[in-house]
Structures are given as structure tokens and as C-alpha cells.
């Protein structure tokens, strides 16, 4: 049954650009292990005759016409949008230097 190691949590944290302390790594490893174990119980159900599914609705080909902002489409105010971000400059989002790319 699942056992989430501390190393796996550290790896995920790195991919997610999160900085976790040693204590947090231990804490989350235990928590995630409990969550994954709980979800894994689904595997105990007899599902041989249930086709794998990735979506609850039996639909395909739900397409939109290629029309710019049909009536009723929300249009965002740029100033308002930029104001939600931690930093903006020159009408653009300002973000920190990208990790590990120096």
C-alpha cells in the first residue's frame, strides 16, 4: 500500500517551487500518506467490468465557434487584473527571476 516518502515530498515541493522546512517535510509526508492510502481503498472495489473513465459526462466534441468575445463574455479591466498580482510593471506582471535558470 502507498507509502509517501520524505524524498518524494521534497521532490514535489521542488517541482511546485515550494520551500519546506525539515519539520514540514516530515509532517506532509505523513499526511499525504494518509490521504493516498484512503483514496487507494477505491482499488478494493470490483471494477473489472467498469471501463476507465476520465470524465463523468458521456460527451465528446463539445466545441465553441471561433468568434471573439460573443455578447456576455466577461472582459477584464487590465488595471484591475494587474492590481491583483503581487507586482506589476509596464502593464505586465512582474515575477521573480526564474529558479534554476541562471
Amino acid at each position: 500500500m502507498p507509502s509517501i516518502t520524505r524524498e518524494e515530498v521534497a521532490h514535489l515541493a521542488k517541482l511546485s517551487r515550494l520551500e519546506l522546512s525539515d519539520a514540514e517535510l516530515d509532517h506532509f509526508a505523513g499526511q499525504l500518506d494518509a490521504i493516498v492510502s484512503a483514496v487507494a481503498r477505491v482499488g478494493e472495489l470490483p471494477t473489472e467490468h467498469v471501463p476507465p473513465t476520465s470524465h463523468p459526462q458521456p460527451l465528446t466534441n463539445v466545441f465553441r465557434a471561433d468568434i471573439v468575445r460573443p455578447a456576455g463574455t466577461p472582459v477584464l479591466d487590465r488595471a484591475e487584473v494587474l492590481a491583483q498580482a503581487p507586482a506589476a510593471e509596464d502593464e505586465r506582471f512582474r515575477v521573480p527571476r526564474i529558479l534554476g535558470e541562471d
Binding site: D90, F93, R94, V95, D102
Partner: peptide, 18 residues
């Protein structure tokens, strides 16, 4: 990428995103 000499990632101080 802002702050780098060449506008590339290398040496950039921060980035502006559109």
C-alpha cells in the same frame, strides 16, 4: 527578462509577463 545584458534568461533580475 529585465536586468540581464541580453534580454535572455541568463543574468536577468526579474521578468515581466504578458
Amino acid at each position: 527578462h529585465v536586468g540581464g545584458a541580453t534580454g535572455r534568461i541568463h543574468g536577468a533580475d526579474y521578468s515581466l509577463v504578458d
